[in-house]
Write a protein that binds this DNA or RNA. Structure first.
Lengths: 227, 227
DNA sequence: TGGGTTATTATGTCTGCACATAATCCTTCC
DNA sequence: GGAAGGATTATGTGCAGACATAATAACCCA
């Protein structure tokens, strides 16, 4: 049986779990571990690097490798296109473009995007699963990132067009709960004040802000980590 | 200027962004890229592996590497101990153990943990930031994982004790919005029905279920991705 | 034509070596 | 005692070569 880097990762994790290597303590150097496991240092390096990435170990040059004292759990979420999300639930997807105008976004949006008094496109889209309201999307979109014949966002949702054409941009995502506004209640068909799960995303390209979007999810929606 | 694996990753990403390599298309083999960039295949491998991990590329043996057609954004969240979360906001942390009993958990809990009719410890803890309710924690805890003199959860919160003593367990996390129940409203000092952000976590050890916890966050709470 | 076997090939991983980099330790000097 | 600077060292990364693995492509034969 050869010892691959996954075996080493498992063994290191085991030693941490059984407190062979206590929380906050230093662990042997890569060289020592390589000698112990009878493999090359690069193999140990790969194993320890992965563990450091998942927050179990903390590594610093010269200082060495230590077990993190109070580990910060890192959870990974998949953020698919809404159409795919609906399809994954086995429901049929459709959407309706409710509104398309343009103007200068309100301050909360401009401050998050880091732009000032830029005229942007405003889109309201309702995404449906089996004909029922699923997500109510309100989006501000920088027109500078669009091609000359502006895409028809009633034919392809802005959500999907952006992923397909401007993907691999940076951005950040926030989740919170909010009471349904009168508008949201009317569009989603829920009672005003009902608890809605909100996702907000800001996206930047290499040069400029691309879009800010707020997604209000229908009651019962859950975000779940991939195990 | 040497070409390191990060340079190669950046260049590959650039070619994808400018549609040099279209979405869904195959890209050259590692050997070809290594020849083009004038580096070892291992270096190209490292770059492509990272891109595959972040969901940009899809790799299969023999088949080669292709650009993912509809990329699924992967967001990483840090889930720290509540005390650290409060400290990071520059507020002072405290907590109160509201209740400690035991019994058989209700069905929603047992089904999520995958245990049946196991007697568990029930804990209610209120976490405070600058004296204000921050998180209301309700937890079911498997007594089999506790040491003989049961820890005093009024001295150290269950949240923190578990992270310090049973960390590196597997588990999954869910987020959703929920209207405040009468009990939650009373404990948190909010109006009944107010929108609360809820986190639910199930945790398993190597052999058995460890704990199920529901965290009701005070209004205004946001979960934010690390960029 | 169809099904099963074999050859080919791109990625996955390991080795042993080398040098780079950053941070600590330790010495030296004022 | 304290600051400055060099020696030391653990990790970070790169290279060339090798074999393993999986999946496709090609082939052969009934």
């Amino acid at each position: 049986m050869r010892t691959g880097w996954e075996d080493i990762r498992a063994e290191v994790l085991r030693r941490i779990r059984v407190r062979d290597w206590p929380l906050g303590a230093m662990i042997p150097t890569e060289q020592d571990l390589a000698a112990e496991f009878g493999c090359a240092r690069a193999t140990v390096n790969r194993a320890l690097r992965e563990l450091a990435q998942s927050g179990v170990l903390e590594r610093r040059r010269k200082a060495g490798t230590r077990v993190v004292a109070l580990p910060v759990r890192k959870a990974t979420l998949d953020i698919p296109v809404i159409r795919q999300e609906v399809a994954a639930r086995g429901q049929s997807y459709s959407f309706r473009l409710l509104e398309q105008t343009s103007g200068v976004p309100p301050v909360p949006v401009t401050s998050r995007l880091g732009v000032a008094s830029l005229r942007m496109i405003y889109l309201e889209t309702l995404h449906l699963a089996d004909g029922q309201p699923f997500v109510y999307e309100t989006r501000w979109l920088n027109p500078a990132v669009l091609p000359d014949p502006t895409p028809d966002f009633s034919a392809i949702s802005a959500n999907e067009w952006l992923v397909a054409h401007l993907s691999y941009a940076t951005g950040d995502i926030a989740f919170f709960a909010s009471a349904a506004s009168a508008r949201e209640a009317a569009v989603m068909g829920v009672a005003p004040g009902e608890a809605l799960f909100i996702t907000e995303r800001s996206t930047w390209g290499p040069q400029q802000a691309i879009t800010f979007v707020r997604l209000a999810h229908a009651p019962g929606y859950r975000v779940q980590t991939v195990v």
